[in-house]
Write a protein that binds this DNA or RNA. Structure first.
Length: 707
DNA sequence: ATTAGGG
DNA sequence: CCCTAAT
């Protein structure tokens, strides 16, 4: 059985490794695992794990959040067992296995053939008993999931070989029962609140895993579990993971050796696509445990999320322990952060729909810019949507929109009671500003439903002149993604860049002076001109020296950051808390401009490779967003670019001249380095350098070297 | 905090 | 760009 690296986890609770970057694109799989304290495994825990996994990936976070919304839950529920139909938005697969061990582990990883599981001791395998807790597709082949859910698993020995409760907590002890929810059942609130056993599943004889139940004699505690989780997100339900078509799903499949993911230290033999759940040979029973909690989550926000957060935190708290034990660098979740905020703001609060007023388009002279300026005018800004796809041919009818206001996504602010009103204002302002400056998505809703296809015309979408009031809505959402548009082609949002972490964070509510503030800047919304913000990123002035300053300054100016005094910073716990809660994000991608490349090359030519800090200081001292690591990386890519054929190069083409300089500088400094190691004779070095550089027609080399 | 490399 | 290991 799987259980590779069981020993990787030497702590209670569980960690949720970051989702490999690869998962940002469709059809990528991720792996994660979870360890459960004692013999308890709860559906919620599992889901939380999955959720946490997803959340850890900032770009996916909202996706998950959406999934948590009540609307989608049903879909999840009904599709859990129907993933083959591909008509759902997310399906969950989970399976667990039993093992004689003191603790339980949740492996959300692809089942690894026993033979290939490198990290578990051979003696572990035999004692392994898999008990499928989730009816998944492969299980369905042999029996109906619905039935499975309602069957009772009995242990002839007087106990249950495996007990899983879909309740908040799953008891692994024998005698416990499986609580499951019918996939088709719609839970009532009452039911949702019940945490006790609901139904007992008895594995039908059909279940190929029955023998597993009869497995070990001892009070077979559910000690270890192996779970494979597959989640599919369909564009329609997942705004962040938008795909061209509904069929284009994202599979979040647990597998340890996810390609490119730093999942497993030990490369496992190539696996079949996750779809074919491997090793059915293992006796497994599965049970869908998602539905209930997925449905429930949106409602019991406080409980759910706090719990959730706790879980996540626990993972983080144990990071060090984890790290120390963990053999490889498999799970780079070190600095991953998630926003609790987005989850909720996206699912409900964040979506503020606005009114629309349609009117027969008479103004043919108006173009889309007019439309947008109008849109944004409401927010006090005008911007040019970078992602505007809709085509407004001049002869089209025009849809007039009037957005009365945007509601800012939910904000959570914590401030001491002793704080002054003024500081509260500043705090709120700061939070709001941070959000706005952080980048927002504009979502389009029609009939309350998100419109995700950016490529449809308004007409096709149904946003036409004869629209009725209220049919169309817009929403501002925290932009979770720095994803390139290509990653979410179906998204209906206008992505705006962000550079700073969302200040939103859910703080422990145990603070007496927690004030929750929801900001609604209706009267005089101060929105940054994000459109320009974008454009400025790559639009540098010609002067390599001051261009960075300029752009930086401009960007900031555009973000309409209110003058924030140090005092404010001191007074607002938001900052501290934000950092504390590790709310951060992947930095936005900022392609190097040619000018920057030029500056970099020049600096490296002079300073050589390996002195990135100096390079930074010298040429990018004013570009705060460029760290020496960035520069180093850029050099690396430049070098690579220079070495590959022009046809293989992508992105903004770098002048061959620069690339040549890169090559020259690289070879030169490489030799330099080598020489230094052998015989630190400055003279020969100089000679070599000069010959090389001059040969490469670097006129300014000398100056730079001298200067 | 930097540097070097792998991802 | 991120993440780590090693300085």
């Amino acid at each position: 059985m799987v259980l590779q690296k069981r020993l990787d986890y030497g702590f209670s609770g569980y960690q949720v490794p970051a989702i490999p970057r690869a998962t940002r694109s469709a059809r990528k799989r991720v792996t994660f695992r979870k360890r459960v304290e004692g013999n308890q495994i709860s559906a919620f825990d599992l889901l939380a794990t999955v959720a946490g996994k997803l959340l850890l990936d900032k770009e996916r976070a909202p996706a998950l959040n959406d999934t948590w919304s009540a609307e989608d839950q049903s879909a999840v529920e009904t599709n859990t067992v129907k993933e083959e139909r591909g008509d759902g938005n997310l399906s969950l697969k989970l399976e667990t296995c039993n093992q004689d061990s003191a603790d339980a582990e949740f492996f959300a990883s692809e089942l690894v053939p026993q033979s290939s599981g490198p990290n578990y001791s051979s003696k572990e395998s035999p004692s392994f008993r898999n008990v499928a807790l989730v009816a998944t597709s492969d299980c369905l082949e042999s029996f109906d999931a619905q039935k499975l859910m309602n069957v009772k698993i009995k242990n002839e020995m007087g106990g249950l070989a495996c007990n899983v409760e879909t309740g908040p907590y799953v008891c692994g002890k024998s005698g416990d029962c499986i609580k499951s929810v019918s996939e088709n059942k719609v839970l009532t609130d009452e039911e949702l609140d019940r945490t006790d056993k609901v139904s007992i599943g008895e594995v039908a004889d059909k279940c190929p895993l029955e023998d597993a139940l009869v497995s070990d004699v001892k009070p077979p505690a559910l000690v270890s579990s192996d779970s494979s989780i597959k989640a599919r997100s369909y564009g329609d339900h997942n705004p962040l993971v938008s795909f061209p078509t509904k069929r284009d799903v994202v599979d979040v499949v647990s597998r340890d050796d996810d390609e490119k993911s730093s999942g497993c230290t030990h490369p496992s033999p190539p696996r079949e696509p996750f779809r074919s759940t491997p090793h059915i040979g293992d006796r497994r029973i599965r049970k869908i445990l998602a539905s209930k909690y997925w449905k429930k989550a949106p409602r019991l926000k406080n409980v759910t999320y706090s719990n959730y957060d706790e879980n996540l935190k626990s993972g983080y708290c144990n990071r060090s322990a984890y790290k120390s034990i963990r053999p490889g660098k498999n799970y780079p979740f070190k600095k991953r952060k998630f926003f609790y905020c987005s989850s909720e703001s996206n699912s409900d609060g964040g979506t503020s729909s606005e009114c629309i007023s349609d009117s027969p388009g008479k103004n043919n002279n108006r173009n889309n810019s007019t439309l947008y300026s109008k849109m944004h005018g409401v927010t006090g800004e005008s911007s040019s949507p970078a992602n505007q796809h809709k085509s407004f041919s001049s002869r089209d009818s025009h849809v007039k929109l009037r957005i009365k206001s945007f509601r800012v996504p939910e904000l959570f602010i914590e401030i001491p009671e002793s704080a002054t009103v003024g500081s509260l204002k500043r705090t709120v302002m700061e939070a709001v500003t941070a959000i706005l400056g952080d980048g927002l998505c504009v979502g389009v809703l029609l009939q309350g439903k998100k419109v995700r296809d950016d490529n449809k015309t308004l007409l096709q979408t149904g946003i036409s002149c004869d629209n009725q009031m209220g049919a169309l809505g817009f929403s501002l959402e925290p932009n979770p993604s720095n994803t390139s548009p290509s990653l979410c082609p179906g998204g209906s949002t206008l992505k705006l860049p962000r550079d700073t972490p969302l200040p939103l964070a859910r703080y422990p509510a145990n603070h007496g002076s927690v004030n929750q503030v929801t900001c609604d800047p209706s009267p005089e919304p101060r929105m940054p001109n994000l459109g320009n913000f974008i454009e400025n990123n790559n639009d540098y002035a010609s002067s390599p020296t001051d261009m960075f300053d300029k752009s930086t300054t401009e960007s900031k100016a555009l973000v309409a950051v209110p003058a924030m005094s140090m005092e404010t910073l001191a007074v607002t716990p938001v900052h501290k808390k934000s950092k504390q809660s590790e709310v951060a994000q992947r930095r936005i991608r900022r392609p190097f401009s040619i000018t920057e490349v030029e500056a970099l090359v020049q600096a490296v030519e002079k300073l050589g490779t390996g002195r990135w800090r100096d390079v930074k200081l010298r040429a990018f001292n004013n570009a705060k967003h460029r760290t020496y690591v960035d520069l180093k990386d850029k050099w690396k890519t430049l070098l690579h670019t220079a070495r590959i054929s022009p046809q293989q190069r992508r992105g903004e083409p770098v002048p061959q001249e620069l690339l040549d300089r890169v090559l020259n500088a690289h070879t030169y400094w490489s030799h330099q380095q080598a020489k230094q190691q052998q015989q630190p004779l400055p003279e020969s070095c100089l000679l070599y350098r000069n010959s090389t550089m001059i040969a490469s027609s670097r006129r300014d080399v000398d100056e730079k070297i001298l200067g």
